[in-house]
Simulated scan of single mutants.
Amino acid sequence: MAKVFFTANLRRHVDCASMEAEGATVRDVLAQVFRAQDRLGSYVLDDQGALRKHMTILVDGQRIRDLERLSDAVRPSSEIWVMQALSGG
């Protein structure tokens, strides 16, 4: 099962524990996570199911490419990090 982690800055806003979930894509894995932690889903995804602009997801250290459908592949041994995108200058 893929391991899903949430950064400390995200956990300050939404109570979300790291967990394991199965799935072939980022969307599949996150759907399981959001069923267990329902408030988290609306914080990470917009009303169309796309990744919110202030969020970033990494799979095995690489930023996902499909921000709308979340179709990036996930292996059973993958680590998925969900975090708030930071900006500044």
Rank of each mutant, 00 (worst) to 15 (best):
A85Q: 13
E20K: 14
D15F: 10
M83G: 01
K53C: 09
H13M: 12
R52N: 14
R12E: 15
G89L: 07
Q84V: 01
D28F: 03
G41W: 04
C16H: 01
L67T: 12
R63T: 14
L30S: 00
M55T: 08
S18F: 02
R12M: 14
G88P: 02
D47T: 12
R52A: 08
A8C: 05
D46Y: 11
L70I: 13
M1Q: 13
T7R: 13
R63C: 12
G23L: 04
R39I: 10
M1I: 09
M83L: 13
I64T: 06
H54M: 09
D47I: 14
C16V: 08
F6E: 00
D60P: 01
L10H: 00
L51P: 01
G49C: 02
R12W: 10
E20W: 09
K3E: 15
G49K: 03
L40F: 09
G88Y: 10
M83A: 03
E79D: 11
A73V: 11
V26R: 05
Q48W: 05
L45H: 09
C16L: 00
P76V: 04
D66W: 01
R75Q: 11
D47P: 08
R52S: 09
R69K: 12
Q62N: 15
L10G: 02
E79A: 13
D66P: 11
G23A: 05
L58A: 04
G49W: 11
T56M: 15
V4I: 04
R39K: 11
S78W: 01
L45Q: 01
L30R: 00
R75P: 00
R69Y: 06
Q62I: 15
V14M: 06
H13Q: 13
T56Y: 10
E68F: 04
M55V: 14
R27V: 02
E22T: 13
F5H: 06
R39C: 06
V4D: 02
S18L: 00
R69D: 12
E68R: 12
V74T: 07
H54V: 11
G61L: 08
A50V: 01
D28R: 05
G88C: 04
S87C: 07
R11F: 03
N9L: 02
C16S: 03
D46T: 12
M83D: 00
V29H: 00
V33I: 15
